[in-house]
């Protein structure tokens, strides 16, 4: 017997994502899903943003890694509450993992959570994790063809940080091409050239974060 079902493939993840969204909204917490390749500068950028935002907001971090807790230790050394999430080989974070980990935070004592997703330009994009916004990072040494080659990540992000902008003189990287390719898949994406090393461009990105933190 054939039965019509029409069941969204990602529903098992979406249900948890929506649950998290509701929970965070009740608590007045904003969550930003930070994604990008291994080494793009996710930890560096989160650290740089924390330095510029911690006077105004109470911040927590979820560090997603396949294994280990190097990045979590970096964040913890700043005196910021951090929870390590190891995916045991999985290339992405799922909403259910976030749901399990949120009780480790005192949500009443937080305004903003950064989630550092697994270093990967493909898979994390398919999984909503209850975030308020997505921040994708592409670093100059990765090359200016990455948006065209990995469109999904860039099509689903709210903001795109072009990190390691200090390296621009040393690479054949055309920022205009990246902007054009990004707008082709995501017309409204906000693009921020930044360098966590020199601090260039970070103020504008900080303003973007402030704009989405729940009042």
């Amino acid at each position: 017997m054939e039965i019509k079902v029409i069941h969204h493939i990602m529903e098992w993840n979406e249900d948890h994502s929506n649950e998290i969204k509701k929970n965070l909204a009740d608590k007045g917490v904003t969550m930003i899903n930070v994604m990008g390749s291994p080494g793009a500068g996710k930890t560096s950028l989160i650290t740089a943003l924390i330095a510029r935002l911690r006077e105004d907001y109470r911040i927590g971090v979820i560090e997603g890694d396949i294994a280990g807790k190097i990045d979590a230790e970096t964040i913890a050394s700043l005196g910021i509450p951090v929870v390590q999430l190891n995916t045991d080989g999985a290339c992405h974070i799922e909403a259910m993992s976030i749901e399990h980990i949120l009780p480790d935070f005192d949500l009443d004592a937080l305004d903003l959570i950064f989630v550092e997703n697994i270093g990967n330009l493909v898979c994390p994009a398919e999984f909503n994790i209850g975030e308020s916004a997505r921040l994708a990072i592409l670093s100059i040494p990765e090359g200016d063809d990455k948006v065209a080659k990995y469109p999904l990540m860039f099509s689903t992000t709210d903001a795109l940080a072009l990190n390691k902008y200090d390296m621009l003189p040393y690479f054949d990287f055309d920022p205009a091409r990246v902007e054009n390719d990004a707008r082709d898949v995501n017309p409204d994406v906000e693009i921020y050239p930044v360098s966590t090393r020199t601090g260039e461009g970070l103020d504008a990105l900080v303003d973007w974060v402030k704009g989405i933190v729940r009042k």
Binding site: K4, V5, I6, H7, H8, P151, D184, P187
Partner: peptide, 26 residues
């Protein structure tokens, strides 16, 4: 994967299909 009109290259396009991912029947 490029949200531009293939006829005139405009970016003002409405996506009619392409994002589906569902179990249709069993």
């Amino acid at each position: 994967f490029r949200l531009r009109c293939p006829a005139c290259t405009s970016r003002s396009v409405e996506l009619l299909s392409g994002r589906e991912a569902y179990i249709e029947s069993m």
